[in-house]
Design a binder for these strands. Structure first.
Length: 317
DNA sequence: GAGATTTGACCAGT
DNA sequence: ACTGGTCAAATCTC
């Protein structure tokens, strides 16, 4: 966007990258609760979607200024690099990657995160690929069964992609079912092209939400939109099904995402305002960008201060 | 009848 | 021995 001074845009990118890194670190805490209620899993899922939104914002801004500095990550972030590189190929073959997934895998002690990815979803059976169920097991310690799927074209193309889906919570009248979906191996078949040919995510709010699942592993399939559109015009329908389903069960309306009251007290409005201020009208200095750490953050300067309070106060370990 | 799902059996890792 | 992942025959659906 030519109207934005480089310094302001860089601050905006820094802001988004900082929020992204913070959520990335804090998201796994939700799964460490002794009582993994549906609400907490849903919150975890929503955090994942928030991360995706930040990824998209980063990708958009990076695309507009490729030479921009890397986000302030304390260590090399493979997922971030994958995100940026995939952005350059937006519109081509689907890619699966998710830092939240990686974080969860690391938390679970997964030794090979590159070939196994985990996501939480309320729509585990619709991710754009064609799967064939080949088994079901009752997993020890859970009251739900785990279903095993392989790529339908396994024997046609030798595709080794598999996934298993396990319900973790919900499924009753009050909580939406939350599924943990674990993907193993990448698709080597061409079934992903079918997914790429699926209808765009943006729909009229009156339409039914029939869009394919874009799990947290597929952050870059969202339509290319401007930051302003992303924050001010994005209807709930542009978000992937996990959020859509959650919003359908909560007293949310179809107003733009930034104007909604969130499930938990994240000040997304201020976050969007901050990014918009820098990105859309030259970075008005009246909206200072926070550079504080999580420890010294305050409600006045930290868009995710409320999130931190939520995570800390809700913890029971 | 073809393809998908179900479900008990089997196997490998711990 | 226990558990998770896969196989394959039986069954179901279109």
């Amino acid at each position: 966007m030519a109207c934005v001074p480089a310094a302001d845009r860089e601050r905006a990118v820094k802001e988004v990258a900082q929020a992204y890194e913070r959520i990335k670190v804090q998201q796994p805490l939700l799964l460490l609760h002794h009582h993994c209620s549906g609400d907490q899993l849903l919150a975890h899922s929503l955090l994942g979607e928030a991360m995706r939104a930040l990824e998209v914002a980063l990708a958009v801004m990076k695309q507009q200024q490729p030479a921009l500095a890397q986000p302030p990550s304390p260590r090399p972030d493979d997922h971030y690099k994958a995100t940026v590189s995939t952005t350059a190929r937006r519109g081509s073959k689907r890619q699966r990657s998710s830092s939240s997934s990686v974080a969860m895998e690391e938390a679970a002690g997964n030794k090979n995160p590159s070939s196994s990815r985990v996501s939480l979803s309320t729509m585990p059976y619709d991710d754009g690929y064609v799967w064939r169920k080949y088994g079901e097991k009752t997993i020890n310690g859970t009251s739900y069964t785990r279903s095993y799927f392989r790529c339908t074209y396994k024997y046609d193309t030798g595709c080794q992609a598999t996934k298993h889906v396990q319900q973790q919570a919900g499924g009753n009248h009050t909580d939406p079912p939350v599924f943990q979906v674990t993907y193993n191996n990448e698709h080597t078949c061409n079934s992903s092209s079918q997914a790429a040919a699926m209808p765009p995510l943006i729909q009229d709010s009156d339409d039914e939400y029939q869009t394919p699942l874009l799990s947290s592993q597929e952050p870059l399939l969202l339509p290319v939109i401007s930051m302003q559109q992303f924050c001010t015009e994005t209807p709930v329908a542009v978000l992937p099904p996990p959020v859509l389903e959650a919003s359908a069960l909560l007293p949310f309306d179809q107003t733009p995402l930034c104007q909604q009251e969130p499930l938990f007290p994240i000040n997304m409005q201020r976050f969007c305002d901050t990014v918009l201020a820098a990105h859309c009208h030259g970075g008005d200095d009246t909206a200072p960008v926070s550079t504080t750490t999580a420890a010294e953050a305050s409600p006045a300067d930290d868009p995710f201060y409320d999130l931190e309070l939520f995570l800390l106060s809700d913890s029971d370990y």
